[in-house]
Design a protein around this nucleic acid. Structure first.
Length: 839
DNA sequence: CGCCCTCGAGCTCA
DNA sequence: CTCGAGGGCG
């Protein structure tokens, strides 16, 4: 990252050893900061300390700022003007022991003292894993005492992070929405509340609560179950009763259905995902309109076929011979397709590689040159060589279309050709609506995007199932699971069924744990990361993120994030100068900018060590801190709106803005294919696997030219990588592996022979394995097992082993070695923490 | 029973 | 900002 150097030009002579000690807050003010006499430590030691996560609070401020850190905000505001000019204002030093940890929900005596207790409680919390229902939360009078209320949180609370407060409200049965409206029962107001929310609040004449009052409400409000349950207004109660009734009714229906099935065949060991697959349109959660369109289209199919696809019909779908359903996993795409087909009297033929027969079909039927395709589709009663009868009433369902085009581009192209001629309806299903490879399909298919269903929609169905399975689950628990699974119904069902094996009830905290364990890895874009890092919450005193968490942000994309921070760190409205005015504010701002800039400059030195001749990859965490966490800690505060002069901007260093999108997309492509073999999200792929693959699929071409082509292709097939992916991997390379450097080293002859050979051979097509609706799930020993679509643990382990072997066999290849080690170390640390807390 | 309005979330863009 | 869903009202 050469640009950082030029931008933050600064004498490059700073001693790294002095770095961490220099910025340490002086004699620490009752923070959990070790006084840090680390002057003598070697730089490696300093690194180890940082690395070991949160023992040392990161130097978030220097002497003049941190004093008021733990002061109650209200007080701070009043005292501010006078205290400003004091060089070192004394912290409000009530000894901590005064803080009585057991705080009654009673009305607050004095805001200051109260806030102090919370601060103490927070400190205690930080020391250990956050104890749920800890001291600062009053005992509720009923577990669901907030039932029927809806809350809006705005601004910065003094002792909870936003998430915690929301969590609290949900825990006790409350509803939390983003925008205040007339339906909002209470607005919980914190510091620096958004002006738009304040306006809305006024407009609707809403009741506001301070943080204290909110807690008090929890302590005093009697839930609907208790005496005086009349607090619920009539309507909501009726609604809830109705809901419950519906749930019971649905549960009965499920029961009835099961009994019927039991007579036909023993089905008790079925997966829940199979057993509770919807059997009528009503039971599909969400996407009502879209499903209807699909059904209508199928219904009109014979007529459309007759008229030659000229009449668009109500939804405009009837001029297409195929439908493309897109949407994230687990929201019922496949289910809807099968169900609609069945309801309209079609026999679904699902092409899916998990079953050998249809795999063969794909291979023989989908290859471009295979003429049997036409015959196969043409006749009324043609039976192709594989014994699948095709009739007029057949309906082809192509699952996971976006996973299919690997190997060669032929997959989608052939499918497209098929669609142009087909005489039976084709339903294509894909996860990623934006995928580049689906582009050719877009023109020939009716696009039917499915969206994630509302939590409430899923909830009622989950509750029915739970009720039927005799599980006791409160609504908010289910909500938690749904949220954690990001509305992936299948995943929620899997979680429930696994849980059911050991227990019949689930508490709110248990559901949180479960959701956390099963949490999907979402990747944050550098934009998101920068927003978060420089936003108002990350470093506020209610933030719960550990140093490790903050560094994790950097590792979301360790090559882009520092650039983004560097590009935008001067555009914030720092929270640290919020209470100042005039010249002192400017001065302080300049100081903060100076500190941040120094840190970035230091980061550059570290960067040089990492990417220099001796690649000290172990310094990555240090780089994370210097380049990202520390600068952000000075200038955080948000204020980078959209548009306007303060808008977040794309790092100039990256030149054309298009590059970013392109790289991200391609990375996604590589990953989709790779995860058949390995598990891991984009970040992991990028951190670990691409660098690890490099020596095997690119380097041989550099070293041995065309001799290595066979070997390389073989290796690529093992990981289901296509020729395009090869390009991507090269393009993603860094440093000496950088694309143009590498491409120059490969001779044109080698390149063409590589391409030629690759295209000449057949390559394995990566289909996702999955069990589905119609096929009875493969019987696995030990009863129902979660239906895991994307995780292949065993293979993952194998890969790790081979990684280690590779490493041993290539001691001379320093860069590969380090690349493998660095991310691993990080990964281990990151995952042990949450797991440790998991039950 | 259907239409309208209000609510709320998702999407997209830097 | 736009879209869908749900509820209330005509």
């Amino acid at each position: 990252m050469p640009s950082a150097k030029t931008k933050t030009a600064k004498p490059a002579t700073k001693d790294l050893r002095a770095f961490f000690t220099g910025a340490q807050p002086g004699p620490s003010q009752q923070r959990r900061v070790e006084p840090a006499p680390k002057k003598d430590k070697s730089k490696d030691d300093a690194f180890v300390v940082i690395d070991s996560d949160e023992k040392v609070q990161i130097p978030e401020e220097d002497e003049d700022t941190c004093a008021d850190e733990e002061e109650p905000p209200k007080k701070r505001k009043k005292a501010a003007p006078a205290a400003l000019y004091e060089p070192n204002p004394k912290p409000q030093a009530e000894p901590k022991s005064n803080a009585s940890p057991k705080k009654a929900p009673a009305p607050a005596p004095a805001p200051a003292g109260k806030a102090f207790n919370w601060a103490a409680a927070k400190a205690a919390k930080l020391a250990g894993p956050p104890a749920p229902g800890s001291k600062d939360v009053p005992q509720p009078s009923a577990p669901d005492c907030l039932l029927g209320l809806s809350f809006v949180f705005t601004g910065e609370l003094s002792s909870f992070s936003r998430d915690e407060a929301v969590d609290l409200a949900k825990r006790f049965g409350g509803r939390v929405t983003g925008q205040p409206s007339s339906k909002t029962s209470y607005v919980v107001l914190g510091d620096n509340a958004g002006p738009s929310k304040l306006a809305a609040l006024k407009k609707h004449g809403l009741k506001t609560l301070s943080e204290d009052e909110f807690l008090e409400l929890i302590g005093t409000r009697v839930g609907p179950g208790g005496p005086g349950g009349a607090q619920l207004d009539e309507k909501t109660r009726k609604k809830m009763e109705k809901e419950e009734e519906a749930i019971k009714k649905a549960a009965k229906e499920l029961e009835r259905r099961e009994n019927k099935e039991m007579k036909e065949k023993a089905g008790s060991s079925q997966l829940w995902t199979t057993r509770y697959a919807p059997q009528s349109l009503k039971e599909i959660c969400g996407n009502k309109g879209q499903v209807e369109k699909l059904q209508q289209w199928l219904h009109d199919w014979p007529a459309s076929l007759k008229s030659g696809f000229k009449k668009p019909g109500k939804s405009g779908a009837n001029i297409f011979r195929a439908i493309l359903i897109t949407g994230s996993p687990g929201i019922g795409k496949t289910t809807s397709a099968h169900l609609c087909a069945k309801l309209e009297g079609f026999t679904p033929i699902e092409l899916n590689a998990s079953d050998a027969r249809s795999k063969k079909l794909v291979e023989s039927g989908m290859n471009i040159n295979n003429m049997s395709l036409d015959g196969w589709m043409g006749g009324n009663h043609a039976t192709n060589s594989l014994g699948v009868a095709i009739t007029k009433k057949s309906c082809l369902i192509m699952d996971e279309v976006d996973g299919m085009s690997a190997g060669d581009r032929g997959g989608v192209v052939a499918l497209n050709a098929l669609i142009k001629k087909t005489k039976i309806p084709i339903i294509c299903i894909a996860n990623d609506a934006g995928a580049q490879k689906l582009k050719p399909l877009k023109g020939n298919t009716f696009n039917l995007p499915f969206r994630k269903p509302d939590a409430a929609t899923i909830r009622s169905r989950m509750l029915s199932i739970a009720y039927k399975e005799k599980m006791k689950l409160p609504a908010n628990v289910v909500d938690q699971l749904i949220g954690g699974a990001q509305s992936d119904i299948r995943q929620v069902l899997n979680m429930l069924s696994t849980w059911r094996l050991s227990s019949e009830t689930m508490s709110f905290d248990e559901s949180k744990e479960l959701a956390k364990v099963n949490e999907k890895n979402t990747i944050l874009t550098p934009f998101d990361v920068t927003n978060k890092m420089l936003g108002p919450y990350m470093f506020s005193h209610t933030a719960r993120e550990t140093l490790g968490d903050k560094m994790e942000m950097y590792f979301h994309d360790h090559s882009f994030v520092p650039l983004f921070i560097q590009e935008n760190y001067l555009k914030t409205q720092p929270a640290r100068i919020r209470d100042l005015n005039g010249p002192p504010q400017t001065l302080k701002h300049l100081q903060l900018m100076y500190q941040a800039a120094s840190s970035i400059s230091d980061a550059d030195l570290v960067d040089a060590l990492i990417h220099g001749p001796e690649q000290h990859w172990t310094l990555m965490p240090l780089h994370a801190v210097c380049s990202t966490v520390r600068p952000a800690s000075f200038l955080y505060g948000g204020g980078m709106g959209y548009g306007g002069p303060g808008a977040m901007s794309f790092p100039q260093w990256l030149g054309q803005n298009s590059k970013q999108g392109k790289l991200t997309r391609q990375l996604g492509d590589v990953q989709i294919r790779m995860r058949l073999k390995v598990s891991g999200d984009k970040t992991e792929i990028r951190h670990s696997y691409i660098p690890a693959l490099f020596p095997y699929i690119v380097k041989p071409l550099v070293d041995n030219g065309s001799l290595a082509v066979d070997q390389v292709i073989e290796r690529m097939d093992e990981y289901y990588l296509s020729r395009e992916d090869w390009d991507t991997i090269v393009e993603l390379g860094v440093d000496q592996n950088k694309d143009d450097t590498v491409l120059k080293k490969i001779s044109a002859a080698t390149k063409s022979s590589f391409t030629k050979k690759y295209n000449a051979n057949e390559h394995p097509i990566p289909f996702h394995k999955r069990t589905d609706l119609n096929k009875s799930p493969k019987k696995l020993a030990g009863g129902p097992t979660p239906d895991l679509e994307e995780v292949f643990d065993a293979e993952d382990e194998v890969l790790e082993v081979s990684d280690a072997e590779n490493k041993r066999g290539n001691e001379d290849d320093v860069s590969a070695d380090k690349l493998i080690q660095a991310p691993k170390a990080k990964k281990g640390k990151a995952s042990t923490q949450p797991k440790g807390r998991a039950k």
